[in-house]
């Protein structure tokens, strides 16, 4: 399941829904990304997507994760629009027979979402607005999967 939403979501509800009615899945791993206040320098985060293209690219990445880690299932929920500090930006869950695959697939999906998924992120605070681009650490994170 892939969903973009401009509404705040409750990651606990998403995780419960994701776990429901599974009899063969032995492991579910999940990740929740939250908007940081950056000690008051970031009042609001604004995320832009390219409707259609963004979902398609996430699906391409997720199908790669399904093949690579033999996932039973996955969920990606991603906010767009204005996000206040403390709100969830992204929810990722992965289901697999065993825990290692679920953990690794979740890590893999997040590394790809950080620097390869079509989102553009603008942070606005007292000092004005700035566009956030992937950091060297984000590129190093994704390189781990490309060997």
């Amino acid at each position: 399941m892939i969903r973009l939403t401009d509404q705040a979501f409750d990651p606990g509800v998403l995780l419960s829904d994701f776990c429901r009615d599974r009899t063969e899945t032995g492991a579910v791993a999940s990740f929740v990304g939250l908007a940081r206040a950056e000690l008051g320098t970031a009042a609001i985060l604004e995320l832009e997507a390219y409707p259609g293209f963004t979902e398609g690219e996430i699906n391409r990445i997720a199908q790669e994760a399904v093949d690579r880690f033999s996932l039973d299932d996955f969920a990606v929920v991603h906010r767009v629009g204005k996000i206040a500090p403390g709100e969830s930006i992204v929810f990722v869950a992965t289901a697999a027979t065993h825990r290692r695959a679920a953990f690794e697939a979740c890590d893999f999906l997040m590394d790809y979402l950080k620097s390869r998924a079509p989102f553009w992120k603008k942070e606005t605070g007292p000092a004005g607005a700035r566009w956030i681009e992937p950091k060297p650490q984000d590129h190093a994170d994704i390189a781990r999967w490309e060997t």
Partner: peptide, 10 residues
């Protein structure tokens, strides 16, 4: 045609 600067999600 879409022009896409460096992407950053999550």
């Amino acid at each position: 045609v879409a022009f896409l600067p460096p992407m950053s999600g999550g």
